[in-house]
Design a binder for these strands. Structure first.
Lengths: 339, 339
DNA sequence: CTGTTAGCGCCTTCAA
DNA sequence: TTGAAGGCGCTAACAG
C-alpha cells in the first residue's frame, strides 16, 4: 500500500520537500549526494508521486481524450488501435468517449473540450459543423480530427477523391463503360453523422468517368442508409433498369457485400457478369476476396496521435493538414465485362 | 473560456466558498434563497467546478480503468462496448489500457491498480495469476474480471463448459459421431495470454462425447495459434487423416471461418459434407450464416461495469461470482452427416 | 444555515 | 544548491 507522500520522503531523506520534488522531476540543480539520499528514501518507502496532486499543481490533466464512433464500424476500431499504441508510450492516460448517436456526439462535443478534463483531444470520423468547430477552437484544447474534416482544424484524412477515382479507373481499365455507384445517403436524415467522405468518393467517381469521357448517368448512382441490406436493395433497383451497369463501385466494403448478395439473388456471377469494387479493406474483404481500395486505418491513428503530441509539446499556429494515400487491392470480384 | 473558480462565484453571490460548494454538491443545508443566488452567480460566470481539484480534495480519481486485449479479437470490442455504455452514464471517466502483448499486460497489472490512478478497475479476458491477483487484492482498488477468472476475485464469466457441451450435443443430435475439435493451443507458448476458456470448452466437448458414449479420439483434437489461417491449416491436417470427422467444433468463430475455408480448399460442401459450429457469435458469424454458440458479449460488459459501480458505492466483502449462459444459434453450417 | 479555515500532495518561486 | 512558503481549486470540519 503506497500512501507515502513527498513529505515522508523529505523527512526520511532529511531534506525539504522542494528538493524531493526536484529530483522527481530531475532538475539539474541538485547535488549528486542529496539526489542519492532522496532516491534511497524513495526506494525505501516505495514512494511514487500522486498523479492527482501533480495534475492540480501543474494545471494539466495528463489525459488525452478520444471521441469516436468506434464500435459502429470495424474501420474505426482499427484507427483507435493506432491511437492507443502511440498514447500508451507516453505518460498520458487515454480516456474514451464512444459515440453511437448524434445526441451523444453533441454532448461530447459540448462537454469534453475543457482544460480540466483533457489536455488534448482526438476526434475520429466525426466532422464537426462550424458551431462545434468554433467551440473546439476557442476551448484552448488542442484537437486533431482523424478521418474527419473541418477547414480550420488540424486533421489527417485519407484521400477519398483519389481513392474513388482509383477504384473507378480500375473498372475502366478493365474495359467497363457502364459503372454504377452505390453509396451512403449524401444528405440528412439518413446520414446522421454526416460522414463527409461520401462526397469525396462520389467526386472521384465522377472524375474518373470524365477523364475517360464516359458520360455520367444519374440513374447509375443509388444511395441509401449505410448497411448491407439496404445496399442489396439498391442493387436490385440499379440492375433492374434497362441497360444496367456491368460494374459497381461501392462506397464501402460493407455495401459491396450487399451488392454481391444482390448479384447472387439475381443469378449474376461475380465477377464474370458483374464486377464489384469496395472501399476500406476491412477484415471481411479479404475473407470474401473482395477487390477494394485500402486505406491504412491503423496508420491514420498513429499519425493523428503523433500530431497531437507534437502540438502539446509545442503549440503551433498553422492548421496542420495531412492527407493519406490509398491503394488498390486487386482480388476476385472484378474482371473485364462480358462481351 | 471557463477559468472562474468557486471563489469567484462566492464573491459574486456574496457568500462563502463553503456555501457554494454545498450547492454544488446539493447539500440540503442551504436555504432556498442563497441557493438561488449561488445558482445565478454560477450561471452568470458559466462556472463549472474543476474536476482536477475535486479529485485531489476527495481523494478520488473519478476514473475507471479498463485493461483489455480489446483489439485482438472482435469479441472483446463487443464487451468493451457494454462497459462503455454503463460508465458513460456516470461521472466516471473511462481510461483505456489496451494489451496486445504479455509484457504490456504485466506492465498494466503492475502499474495501473493504484488508488491515485483509478477508483476501480475492469479487466477483460485476462486471467491474472496468483501473484498478480494478490497485487490487485492488496491494492485496495476494486476490480472486476470480465470473461476472466481468479478464485479470489470478483468475476463475470460465461459458462464455457456448458457452451462447449451444447455445441457438441447439437452435432450429436444431428447424428454425428465423428466430431473434431479445433482450438487455441492449450499451453504456452502459443497461448501467451493463457485464455482459460479453452480448457472449459474442451471439457464441454469431452463431456458431450462421454454422455453420448462416443469415445474420445485424440487425433480429432487439433490445436494451434488462434487465427483463421492456422485453423485452416489444422483443418487440412484433421481432414487428411483416415476416417476423418464429419463435423468440427471450433473454439471460436474466427477459427470456424478458417475451417470453412479449408473445406472449400478441399472441395467439401458445408454443411452437406462437413458440419461446422463455432463459438462467440461475433458479427461476422451472422454474415456467413455460421451456426454457433452465442454468448452475450455486450451484456457481460454491462454486468461487469454495474458490479463495479455497486462495489464502488458500497464495498462488499464476499467474492462476487456471476456466470452467464450461452445459447445455440442454429444457422446454415450444420446438418446431419452424409450417409 | 453559513463563513472561515485547514488540508489534499505536489510544484515553484523566493530567499538564504 | 537548498529549505520554506504559497498556491493550484475544491471539500469538509468547526465555529458561530
Amino acid at each position: 500500500m503506497n500512501s507515502s507522500t513527498i513529505r515522508d520522503v523529505a523527512k526520511l531523506a532529511g531534506v525539504g520537500v522542494g528538493t524531493v520534488s526536484r529530483v522527481l522531476n530531475d532538475s539539474p540543480d541538485v547535488s549528486e549526494l542529496t539526489r542519492r539520499k532522496v532516491l534511497a528514501a524513495i526506494a525505501e518507502l516505495d514512494f511514487s508521486p500522486s498523479v492527482i496532486a501533480r495534475r492540480l499543481s501543474l494545471r494539466k490533466t495528463l489525459t488525452i481524450g478520444v471521441i469516436a464512433p468506434f464500435f459502429t464500424r470495424p474501420a474505426f476500431v482499427e484507427r483507435l488501435r493506432g491511437v492507443e499504441k502511440v498514447i500508451a508510450q507516453t505518460n498520458y492516460d487515454l480516456v474514451l468517449f464512444n459515440v453511437e448517436t448524434p445526441e451523444r456526439r453533441d454532448a461530447c462535443f459540448r462537454d469534453v473540450p475543457r482544460r480540466d478534463r483533457v489536455d488534448g483531444l482526438l476526434i475520429l470520423s466525426l466532422s464537426p459543423e462550424d458551431a462545434a468547430a468554433n467551440r473546439f477552437l476557442s476551448s484552448q484544447v488542442p484537437t486533431i480530427l482523424i478521418d474527419a474534416y473541418h477547414p480550420q482544424m488540424h486533421h489527417v484524412v485519407v484521400d477519398n477523391i483519389a481513392g474513388g477515382q482509383k477504384a473507378v479507373q480500375h473498372l475502366i481499365d478493365l474495359g467497363h463503360r457502364q459503372i454504377g455507384f452505390i453509396s451512403d445517403a449524401m444528405e440528412n436524415p439518413f446520414n446522421p453523422f454526416r460522414f463527409s467522405h461520401i462526397h469525396d468518393r462520389y467526386q472521384g467517381y465522377r472524375q474518373a468517368l470524365d477523364a475517360a469521357a464516359i458520360p455520367f448517368r444519374p440513374e447509375y448512382h443509388k444511395q441509401g442508409l449505410h448497411s448491407r441490406s439496404v445496399a442489396r436493395q439498391l442493387t436490385h433497383d440499379l440492375l433492374s433498369q434497362p441497360d444496367p451497369p456491368t460494374a459497381i463501385f461501392a462506397y464501402s466494403d460493407t455495401q459491396a457485400l450487399g451488392i454481391i448478395e444482390a448479384a447472387n439473388d439475381l443469378g449474376l456471377r461475380v465477377p464474370e457478369q458483374l464486377s464489384v469494387i469496395g472501399f476500406d479493406d476491412i477484415e471481411l474483404a479479404e475473407y470474401v476476396g473482395l477487390t477494394t481500395i485500402r486505406q491504412n486505418l491503423y496508420n491514420s491513428g498513429v499519425i493523428g496521435a503523433n500530431m497531437l503530441l507534437e502540438l502539446l509539446a509545442a503549440p503551433i499556429h498553422a492548421v496542420q493538414k495531412v492527407t493519406l494515400p490509398t491503394e488498390l487491392i486487386n482480388r476476385q470480384t472484378t474482371a473485364p465485362p462480358q462481351r
